[in-house]
């Protein structure tokens, strides 16, 4: 059963900062990716896209800013 991370709540910044590698994020543009790196700066996550509105980006790695992340859950 997957765990949902509350990245929008009062402790959201800390929860975001601590998101583990392997967790899945859904972005505001509908893209879905797996976290492959978290610099723990509270700002960015490195993700590999499994779904993306631009299909050429599926499989690509990218750093996403916190305001692009709609939700996060463990796989």
């Amino acid at each position: 059963m997957s765990e949902t991370y509350n990245i929008k709540g009062q402790d959201g910044i800390q929860v975001f900062t601590d998101l583990p590698e392997g967790a899945q994020v859904t972005l505001t543009n509908g893209a879905v990716g797996t976290i492959i790196g978290n610099p723990r700066d509270g700002a960015f996550l490195e993700v590999t896209y499994s779904e993306h509105p631009d299909s050429s980006l599926v499989g690509a790695d990218e750093f996403v800013f916190f305001n692009q992340v709609e939700s996060a859950a463990s796989k």
Binding site: P39, A43, F44, F63
Partner: peptide, 23 residues
């Protein structure tokens, strides 16, 4: 993993490449 500027979050990877900016 990256060098994140604490001012406006311009962020660079370990090759020095700009990989993200805030907002």
């Amino acid at each position: 993993l990256v060098f994140t500027c604490p001012y406006h979050a311009w962020t660079y990877d370990t090759k020095g490449k700009l990989v993200g900016v805030g907002f």
